[in-house]
């Protein structure tokens, strides 16, 4: 099957100074790299998980796909059509097919509008007003298991879980094919996280939606996504089918992340693969393999050159000079 979304060597760079300043300071390259050439594809009806710590560039990928950031090079193909370089007017129809769900449940809802008006926004923007708006709003609220009377409330009157549901409802308004969910469970209590993830799974079943889930929570990704990519400083260090990446990981960073998410058991002997330090800033991107400053198995070669892509079976890719041996199951 042809992929719904195909991201091919996507590279996003941020300008660090104005053109004039760069000219004065004779800086030919006044940029830093946000995303360093990532490639992945999402099949219809599937969920792709993008995992990384803060500063890894996962939100940048999402915003680039939505056309909210200029793309330096690479392609973003939706149904085979490249979105990179399209004008505002040409890209607008695609915004109906790709919806974005935001990190902050309440903060992504316009605070002075009632829920009813917030849900009507997508229709207004795309001039697709349904004949009976209140019926449509009630239908959307019902889809996310909220009562239609919620339409009369303001965002600050909702609980975190309810606000998140409204976010889902808004994303669903124009019947998109792909929903990009940025940290769908962040800021929610454990008992509510499940509700949102179940809702997303149910919608996927009913409507054949595809999801791109961006999160730092590996436990969430393990349950909901078919494929997963582990991101670090703008690169996918490892990517592949979720089961493979979780059980036959080859990259030390994946292993460290996974061990940081061990199940809560006071008696568990933690074979924690401790990695020291923190993710470096984009400005001070390390040479060679970006992860070498924190890698427990770092060797001389890692400091000098970035490893080539290596594959291990179908769809499983990683970048490491000295990959882990596959654990025996």
């Amino acid at each position: 099957m042809a992929p719904l979304l195909e991201v091919d060597h996507l590279r996003v760079r941020f300008k660090t100074k104005s053109a004039v300043k760069a000219l004065i300071e004779k800086d030919d390259d006044p940029y830093i790299d946000g995303v360093m050439g990532v490639s992945f594809a999402i099949e219809p009806g599937q969920t792709y998980g993008l995992v990384g710590e803060s500063g890894s560039g996962k939100t940048t990928v999402a915003r680039a796909i939505m056309g909210l950031l200029p793309v330096h090079s690479g392609a973003i193909r939706f149904h085979g059509e490249n979105l990179v370089g399209l004008s505002r007017d040409r890209i607008k129809p695609f915004r109906r097919d790709i919806a974005l769900m935001f990190q902050d449940p309440a903060g992504s809802l316009s605070p002075r509008l009632k829920i009813r008006s917030i849900l009507a926004e997508p229709f207004r923007i795309h001039d697709m007003m349904p004949e009976n708006l209140s019926v449509e709003v009630a239908r959307l609220l019902k889809m996310v298991n909220l009562s239609p009377s919620m339409g009369d409330l303001y965002p600050h009157q909702l609980s975190g879980g309810q606000a998140r549901r409204v976010g889902v409802a808004r994303a669903l308004a124009l019947s998109p094919k792909l929903i990009i969910a940025d940290e769908p469970t962040a800021g929610l209590d454990v008992s509510v996280q499940g509700e949102i993830l179940n809702l997303m799974a149910q919608l996927q079943n009913d409507m054949g939606l595809s999801f791109l889930i961006i999160t730092h929570n590996l436990a969430v990704v393990r349950h909901v996504s078919d494929h997963v990519a582990i991101m670090y400083l703008g690169r996918f260090l490892e990517q592949g089918p979720t089961q493979t990446v979780f059980h036959r990981m080859r990259h030390p960073y994946t292993q460290a992340l996974l061990s940081a998410h061990a199940s809560p058991d006071p008696d568990a002997v933690h074979h924690r693969i401790s990695i020291s330090g923190e993710i470096p800033g984009l400005v001070s991107r390390p040479r060679g393999c970006e992860f070498h400053t924190r890698c427990p198995g770092v060797q001389e070669k890692c400091r000098r050159q970035f490893p080539d892509k290596a594959g291990a079976g179908k769809d499983h890719r990683y970048f490491c000079h000295y990959p882990l041996s596959v654990p025996e199951n």
Binding site: R63, R95, L100, G107, L109, S110, P111, R112, E121, R124
Partner: peptide, 26 residues
Amino acid sequence: NQEFIVAEEAMGAGMGRILGIHILPN
């Protein structure tokens, strides 16, 4: 810079709409 404005941009809202309906009342 707040998310509800980025959310509008992501849905394809124009500048007039963002300023008039979402920023002005705030």
